[in-house]
């Protein structure tokens, strides 16, 4: 039964296509402030320091990218962030849970000691979210997770 799709993003979600569609171009524009690269099938995103209220949209665009390109993992790099508003922290928590549901586990990395103490004081724990000291560790963890998955699937 067809249901009503409310946004362009939903229309293109999960539709593989080689040409860039209008909504995808929109995603690219939305996300153009983010430093992103893909390595080992994982999407690596370094968050810019000047995030504002538009961020909810941008994070859902990220989720669409993960889905569209079938990324096997998502790394969110916070190494540029000196402060992280609690609202944004809880959005990141949501994003990583959502991404895990797409079978693209998320690892948050690059939290500086100063940011760590601020997050602790704000009561933000990133429970249920994988954390790594740096990007190397994050990618290593995702690789390890993937081989563990393969092992489970093949019955070892």
């Amino acid at each position: 039964m067809a249901t009503k799709l409310s946004t362009d993003e939903e229309l293109t979600a999960g539709v593989p296509s080689s040409g860039a569609s209008q909504p995808e171009l929109q995603h690219v524009r939305t996300l153009s402030r983010y430093a992103m690269h893909i390595t080992n099938d994982c999407l690596v995103v370094t968050l810019p320091t000047d995030l504002d209220s538009e961020v909810t949209r941008e994070l859902s665009a990220l989720l669409n990218l993960v889905d569209r390109h079938r990324h096997r993992g998502l790394v969110i790099d916070l190494s540029l962030m000196d402060i992280l508003p609690s609202k944004l922290a809880s959005l990141l928590e949501q994003l990583s849970r959502a991404s895990s549901l797409l079978n693209a586990p998320t690892v948050i990395c690059g939290i500086k000691p100063g940011l760590a103490s601020a997050l602790a004081l704000l009561g933000i724990r990133f429970d249920g979210v994988r954390k790594a000291r740096n990007m190397d560790h994050a990618l290593a963890e995702l690789t390890q997770l993937r081989s563990a998955n393969v092992a489970v699937r093949s019955g070892y």
């Binding site: 209220s53 000196d82 402060i83 508003p85 609202k87 000691p113 100063g114 103490s117 004081l121 704000l122």
Partner: peptide, 21 residues
């Protein structure tokens, strides 16, 4: 200290955001 400055900035951010939200 550097760390303290960021903590205070974090508190300012929370308080200011409350006004908006």
């Amino acid at each position: 200290g550097r760390a303290e400055r960021f903590l205070v900035a974090t508190a300012v951010s929370e308080l200011a955001r409350n006004l908006v939200v």
